Simulated assay, not measured.
Amino acid sequence: MTPEQRNILRINEPKLVSDIIPSDILSWMMCLTDEDNEVIMAEERNYGYSRAARLLLDRLKRRGAEAFGQLVNALRENGLEHLALLIDPNNEVILE
């Protein structure tokens, strides 16, 4: 993920965290490891969506260039177009 993309996520984190249900989008996040998925799911079960979404965003920021596009696509696929447009307002990420 580029520094600019990380900054976009940082700026929009409050809105992302309030609307994302991590378990709904993890299957689109191929850049995450099985361990990442397990930890995020455990966080969601034990502490709720918001904490799990923060952890998800933190893990994504540490991944390669594909992570941002996967997030945008996952948001679109799960009916969260408003969040996809928030972080990708010019629709630069192409659906895979």
Rank of each mutant, 00 (worst) to 15 (best):
V39H: 03
R54C: 03
M41P: 00
I20A: 03
I8G: 00
I8W: 03
E38W: 00
D34A: 04
R59Y: 13
D19Q: 13
D19K: 12
I11G: 09
I25M: 08
L56T: 14
A52P: 10
A42E: 08
S18N: 11
R51F: 11
M29V: 15
I11K: 08
L57I: 14
V39Q: 11
E44I: 05
R10F: 08
C31F: 02
L55E: 13
R51P: 00
P22R: 07
W28F: 15
S27Y: 02
E44L: 04
D19M: 14
Y47W: 13
D36N: 14
A53R: 04
V39M: 07
L26W: 04
R10E: 03
A42Q: 13
N46H: 05
V17K: 09
S50Y: 06
I11R: 10
Y49H: 14
R54M: 08
L9Y: 12
K15P: 00
R54A: 02
L56I: 05
M41Q: 11
Y49C: 12
L60V: 02
S27I: 02
V17Q: 01
S18C: 05
R51S: 06
I25L: 08
L16G: 10
N7I: 06
A52K: 06
L32H: 06
S23K: 07
A52S: 13
S18R: 14
S18F: 03
E44Q: 15
I8S: 09
N12P: 07
D58K: 08
L55F: 00
I8A: 10
M30K: 12
L56H: 09
I40F: 09
L57S: 07
R51M: 13
I20C: 07
I25W: 03
I40S: 06
D58G: 10
M41T: 06
G48S: 10
V17F: 01
E35Q: 13
D34K: 12
